[in-house]
Amino acid sequence: MIFKIYYQDSKKETPRRENTRSLYIDAESKPEAIKRIEDHNPDFNLEQIELLTGKALEYEQQGVNYKLVEY
């Protein structure tokens, strides 16, 4: 399953919408995706995890910023 993770680079700063970034990860479940992100990027402030399927996944894959993160 492909998940889109919305995050801020630091837990120490107050979250601001302008600083929200995203990445894509392939994981078996939402908890596994969260664990893998937190294990490799402990400073990230995770905001939202979205499962991408069907047309939403197709749309994201067409974007220039689409790249699966490999851990």
Rank of each mutant, 00 (worst) to 15 (best):
I2E: 05
A56P: 10
I49Y: 04
Y71T: 04
E58M: 14
K55Q: 12
Y7K: 01
T14C: 05
E18R: 11
P31R: 11
Q62K: 13
R21P: 05
I25N: 06
L52T: 02
T53M: 15
E70H: 15
K12Y: 13
P42R: 08
Y6M: 02
K35M: 01
E18M: 10
I5G: 08
H40E: 10
E13C: 10
E38A: 14
S10G: 00
E60C: 07
Y24E: 02
D43W: 02
P42V: 02
V64P: 11
E58K: 15
R16Y: 15
L23A: 08
E58T: 10
E28D: 12
L46R: 01
E50R: 11
I5H: 02
P15N: 04
D43G: 11
S22L: 11
Y71R: 09
F44R: 03
V64C: 09
H40F: 09
A56Q: 14
L57S: 06
D43Q: 12
N41W: 14
K11N: 01
A27F: 02
P42D: 09
V69R: 06
E70D: 14
D9K: 14
K55C: 03
S29C: 00
I37E: 00
K30A: 09
D9F: 04
E32W: 14
K4W: 00
Q8F: 05
G63S: 13
Q62C: 07
N19Y: 15
E50H: 14
D9I: 01
S22T: 09
A33F: 00
L57I: 09
D9P: 06
F3G: 00
G54P: 07
T53Q: 15
E18Y: 08
N45M: 05
A33Y: 00
K55I: 14
L46F: 07
Y24S: 04
D43R: 12
K67I: 10
E70G: 04
Q48N: 15
D39N: 09
F3W: 02
E58H: 06
E47A: 02
D39P: 00
Y7N: 02
E13D: 11
